[in-house]
Computed example of a mutant assay.
Amino acid sequence: MFRSYLRLALFALGLLVGVQVPGFIDDYSKRVDAHRIEAEQGLKGFRQTAQRFFKGDLVALVGHYQASADPVMRSDAQSLGTLVERSAFLEREAKAMQGAWYAQVFHLATAADHELMEETLDAYRYQVLLAPEAIVWGIACAMLLAWLLESLALLVGVLLGVGRSQKVQRRHWR
């Protein structure tokens, strides 16, 4: 009876963990979009200048600032270059989060920005979504967790000889 309740508890735990996945993916995507919009706002004036003098090429504008004899312009070139790089990075990150759900999960697991991931984790509030993808994630995680832990318990039991009858143990020790 205890094993049955333990299985149910593990299943419930897996279910609750699984339903968090779509919510976390959504929060990370929204955070990336917010940072991307902020970066674009910071570059708005520079984009207008680049459009007017360099056919919209921000890299050419940065190069022009770097080549300037004015030390203030050269200093601003480094700041502008950082903004341009950050904007391009956030644009790539936003595109990665627009793909299929499995591509989003793979991206978060392997290539997500650690700073944005930490921000998302710090601000994340656990939620139970009743969206179809949350339900699927919940059931899949619950089944996987229950299966893994039960398999581990059975393996440990076999290794320790738990559940064997005395007759079977005597037969193997002859």
Rank of each mutant, 00 (worst) to 15 (best):
D57R: 04
D113K: 08
V72Q: 06
Q166P: 05
Q166I: 09
V158P: 00
F24Q: 04
T110M: 06
T82R: 04
R86V: 09
T110W: 07
D33L: 11
T110N: 12
W101I: 08
G157C: 06
A60K: 13
F2A: 11
Q98K: 15
Q166S: 12
T82V: 04
L148D: 06
L129N: 08
E118L: 14
Q169D: 10
A131T: 15
V84N: 02
R174M: 06
A109W: 11
D70Q: 08
G161Y: 14
L43C: 05
L6Y: 11
Q20D: 05
A140C: 10
Y65K: 03
A142F: 07
F2C: 03
G81F: 07
R164C: 01
W173T: 08
D76Y: 12
R164G: 00
R3E: 07
W147I: 06
A142L: 05
M73D: 06
R170Q: 13
A134G: 06
I37F: 05
A9S: 10
Q48N: 08
T49N: 02
L16D: 01
E133G: 03
L83S: 10
M143A: 12
V162G: 00
S75Q: 13
H107C: 07
S68D: 14
S87R: 03
V21P: 02
V59C: 00
F24C: 09
S4P: 01
A77L: 12
T120E: 02
L8T: 07
R86M: 06
E38D: 08
L159C: 11
V128D: 00
H114K: 12
R47P: 07
A140I: 10
L58G: 01
R125D: 12
F54S: 02
G161F: 09
I135K: 11
A112T: 13
F46N: 11
R171S: 09
F53D: 10
R164W: 10
Q169T: 13
Q41I: 15
A146W: 12
Q48G: 04
G18R: 03
V62M: 00
E118K: 15
Q127F: 08
D70N: 15
Q66Y: 04
V158H: 10
E118V: 15
D76P: 01
H114P: 05
D26C: 04
Y102Q: 11
S165Q: 13
L159F: 15
H114T: 15
S75N: 14
T82Q: 01
A39S: 13
R86C: 01
K167P: 00
D113I: 09
G81L: 04
K95H: 07
